[in-house]
Design a protein around this nucleic acid. Structure first.
Length: 595
RNA sequence: GGUCCUGUAGCUCAACUGGAUAGAGCAACUGCCUUCUAAGCAGUAGGUUUCAGGUUCGAGUCCUGACAGGAUCACCA
């Protein structure tokens, strides 16, 4: 980072001295030189030809000569068309390496004094988590960690949807068909138990509809009049009236579900600092409706319903309170928005929610802006694409989902099979071996879901999607394990690689290329934070691991006769391992020392 | 129908926000384990970036219009 800034400021000086022209830093950018050309950084001359009043080649040469003469980091240049390719001195690279190597807070930028809340996961308590939730949870967790690394104070929040008609459906079905079954008696995790009755409800409900249609009702009427649905709606009313029996059942079932979720979250390796429950928040926001009315942001229709007119912002009129005075979804979201701010005073509030709710958040944020909330600039919907199966979209009611618990178990089993086939667990205790399978299986899964740009929808093929070779989590984990092995050997034969690289005066290509990419780590953390995109970091870590493996294949460490060079290569390996480890941690992925 | 998102190698994804001959992995093919872990490395092959226009020194990227896929548009959550 520092190196690029040095070069840029020298270029800025150059424009002043050579062409008598002031150029803003923000207008100057370097890009990596394509590998078919000589050099590390490339400066594009085209946009500045008006300033230089010379042909592209001549402009580039003149600036290049200036940089070599004036800057002690630029040692050479070449100009191809309008592209000025700059070479950086080996001593600069060695200096960069020493700085990175001695940095005790590698991968952690200093505090920026800002608070951010990241809401993610936000499950419904009527069914277990599935593949789509995995993307949500891994994303939310990773973005939180990335923001921490960027110097934010982060609060991870989970807004649990623990009430509503869908919960009542599971409850009604349980009352009818449950026979007092419990997680203990059935051996089912609590969330799977609730999900089982949600599916049963749907099945029985459809049966009832069919019967009613046979009796001559229209499809539409049948859907409304089916006894099970009526019962669920009735149960919801009783719940809202705080009916003792209904509330007791609700508490019981939710407790089972939470126990199940806890186990799943633990397996996933995600956690939360704050839980919000919709049963506590669903009545919030009515005061904001009043506020909006008095501010003239909202208006009332004849039947008493309250609306906001967003047509000036390119949207429609949107209901914010029903005619009977009850809330809609957005009412409580307005309330929760304020609640979060009052609880934590955030500068930014991020909602990790699927792109099916783009419109909803568009509306919500525009409303909060109209209401003039002090934090309205910090609201951000981290909208991610759905995970599709080869067979199409997942539907929980129809049981065409990939269950999160099942998928994680399968991944771990696959990792076990694969590891055993390769015969890589000599000397492992059973516990160590199991821990490794888990690290690898989950690493593969997390990396697979995080390496894709969040906003893009992605395809998951359970049979083929997850590999252990190439652009995968295990490939990066493997690179780390290789280095760990080198470090063990270095310790064993007593290589001192902690200090003293003054004697190094020459770099092999593979060494230099590795330092160049190691130097990008901080920049990538920044980008990933600015764009809320773990994918950028994932891509970087893959490139880094690849570069290391090239280095590993090209140059020998322990056959190197020069002790200084040998120590330097061990140190370079060590820095790579540290970078991989701390980068993978930001993705929520552990790295093993042996595999 | 209105609005929004997406479209890149056979498949899954990149492309530093407008820069050079569009890159990786998987799958296919060819080499490399007597040497620090072959879950690796090196190489071959694979492309009219959905299509048609436009903007400029320069377009996968920006604009317009088609086409295809998806989401959304309830006094549902």
């Amino acid at each position: 980072m520092y190196l690029e800034q040095q070069i840029i400021s020298a270029i800025q000086q150059g424009f002043k001295v050579l062409f008598d022209h002031e150029v803003g830093i923000e207008d100057l950018g370097l890009q990596p030189t394509r590998k078919e050309f000589e050099g590390t950084y490339t400066f594009v001359m085209f946009p500045f030809l008006k300033v230089t009043k010379m042909a592209p080649e001549a402009s580039g040469s003149k600036l290049g000569e200036y940089l070599v003469a004036q800057s002690d980091v630029v040692t050479g240049f070449n100009v191809v068309k309008g592209f000025l390719n700059l070479s950086v001195s080996e001593t600069s690279w060695i200096g960069i390496f020493e700085k990175l190597y001695s940095n005790p807070s590698l991968g952690q930028l200093p505090s920026n004094g800002q608070k951010v809340m990241v809401e993610y996961s936000s499950p419904n308590t009527n069914k277990p988590l599935h593949l789509g939730h995995l993307r949500n949870n891994f994303l939310g967790f990773s973005v939180s960690e990335i923001l921490k690394a960027n110097g934010y104070e982060v609060t991870k929040a989970n807004l649990v949807n623990d009430r509503g008609i869908h919960i009542c459906k599971s409850m009604v079905a349980y009352q009818h068909f449950g026979n007092g079954e419990t997680p203990t008696s059935s051996g089912l995790k609590g969330d799977h138990l609730a999900g089982k009755y949600y599916v049963i409800f749907d099945k029985e409900y459809k049966k009832q509809i069919a019967e009613l249609v046979d009796q001559g009702l229209s499809e539409e009427d049948a859907k409304k009049q089916a006894p099970l649905l009526v019962e669920a709606q009735d149960m919801l009313r009783k719940w809202e009236a705080n009916d003792t029996e209904v509330v007791a059942l609700w508490k019981q079932m939710n407790e089972w579900v939470y126990a199940g979720f806890d186990a799943t979250y633990k397996k996933m390796g995600v956690d939360f600092d704050k839980f919000y429950f919709e049963s506590d928040t669903y009545l919030l926001g009515k005061d904001i409706v009043e506020e909006g009315l008095s501010k003239g942001v909202f208006f009332k229709k004849e039947n008493g319903s309250v609306w906001v007119d967003l047509s000036a912002e390119g949207l429609d009129e949107k209901l914010v309170l029903r005619g009977d005075g009850t809330s809609v979804y957005i009412t409580q979201d307005m309330g929760t928005c304020d609640l979060k701010f009052n609880d934590f005073g955030f500068d930014k509030s991020i909602y990790v929610v699927g792109n099916e709710q783009d419109y909803h958040f568009d509306v919500l944020f525009k409303i909060m802006r109209k209401l003039g909330r002090p934090y309205d600039d910090g609201l951000y919907h981290l909208s991610y694409g759905m995970v599709d199966l080869p067979t199409g979209k997942m539907k929980s009611r129809e049981g065409t989902v990939v269950d999160a618990d099942d998928l994680m178990s399968e991944m771990i089993e696959t990792a076990e099979t694969h590891t055993k086939e390769l015969g890589k667990i000599e000397g492992f205790s059973t516990e160590e071996a199991n821990a490794l399978y888990e690290t690898l299986g989950l690493g593969a899964l997390k990396y697979f879901l995080l390496k894709v740009d969040p906003k893009k929808r992605m395809l998951f093929n359970p049979k083929e999607s997850i590999e252990f070779q190439g652009n995968t989590g295990p490939f990066i984990q493997y690179s780390h394990a290789r280095i760990a092995s080198i470090l063990r050997k270095a310790e064993q034969i007593g290589v001192d690689y902690q200090h003293g690289f003054a004697g190094i005066d020459h770099l092999e290509d593979a060494e230099r290329d590795l330092i160049i990419i190691l130097n990008d780590f901080e920049k990538k953390i920044r980008q990933a934070g600015d764009e809320f995109s773990p994918a950028l970091l994932a891509q970087y870590l893959f490139d880094l691991a690849k570069e290391y493996n090239r280095f590993y294949a090209d140059l020998s460490i322990f056959n190197e006769s020069d002790n200084k060079v040998q120590a330097f290569r061990v140190a370079l390996s060590s820095l790579t391992a540290k970078t991989i480890k701390s980068g993978m941690k930001l993705l929520g992925i552990n790295v093993p020392d042996r595999m």
